[in-house]
Amino acid sequence: MTESLHYVVIGSGSAGHGAATTIRARDPGARITMITMSRLPFYNRYDLPKMFKGVTDWRDLLAEDPKIYDELGITLRRNSRVVDIDGRARTIALAHNEVIAYDKLLVCTGGGPNVPAILEDYRPLMHGFGTFEQASATVAALPPGGQVVILGGDMIGLDIAFNLLEAGYRVSLAVGEQTFWPHRVEPDERAVLLKSLAKTGLDLIEDRSVVAIEAADRPARRVHFDDGSMVETDIVMPFFGILPIVDFMLGAGIDMERGVLVDPALKSSNDAIWAAGDVCQIWSDVDRDYRFYHGWKNVRVMGELAARNMTGAEETFDTADESVIEVDGNGCIRSTFWEH
């Protein structure tokens, strides 16, 4: 009996989940481990804004019944942070000192919020929404009908902003470079889009840059701008796009730029390591450069593709959707990023 291969997937988002299920489908005897920092089983981060509408139990957010992990024989390692990958030894080290050997590794750690350097110091005073925990804390911090200041924007932040408005909160949006990230928006387009945003009830804060955030009593935050103005709010949420989470694999000996550099088959410079999702930069023959492909659909496709290739296929990522953002007939913003 030959040793079954050990596939390790880092990350339990759409890409990781899709990859793991695909591997299982293609290699029933394989050993599959999925490692995630998340403390919850796979849930859809895109559904987190539902929490503003009263969905508070994470169980209602689960993308899959967690039983499938048992059914599929996938070891789900949660609350586990990878701190190192040894590409030669084919092992990964976890923060809690556990070492896991792999035969084939798929990195789909996605990205984390991009916080401008100027706001680094104020992280503790800001609320995130990247995880259920963050979302819960955010929701908890909001008094009914409370005030939210969203810094930056980006398509995730906008989605949240809309949900907040829908839930009856007051939302201010301090717009900036990343307001429509990851869409690349031309300046004319931008004006239309901002106009459309304003129509939704968002209080747009334009032409000002945040310089400081201050904790206060009630409301709990004060946001200071470069023009000396100040906005009082209950919470402050930064949305400046996301950055690939790759710091853990700096010692892996694979080629990286911002993300993990992979070929169109999503394989990295190490034959046993693949990457998929927000973490990877894929070589584009068209662009003659490594590109990110964000968005739920892309991520999912990448995960499955990588999985197929890891299990013997030789496919390439060439069906990427071009991201589209526009204002529809109703004057509402429509984005491919939001389609799921």
Binding site: P41, P66, K67, Y69, D70, T75, L76, R77, R78, N79, S80, L94, H96, N97, E98, V99, I100, A101
Partner: peptide, 14 residues
Amino acid sequence: RLPEGGHVSAHIRP
């Protein structure tokens, strides 16, 4: 340093 599965987190049910 723990081998694979040597940590309790490796065994937590979903």
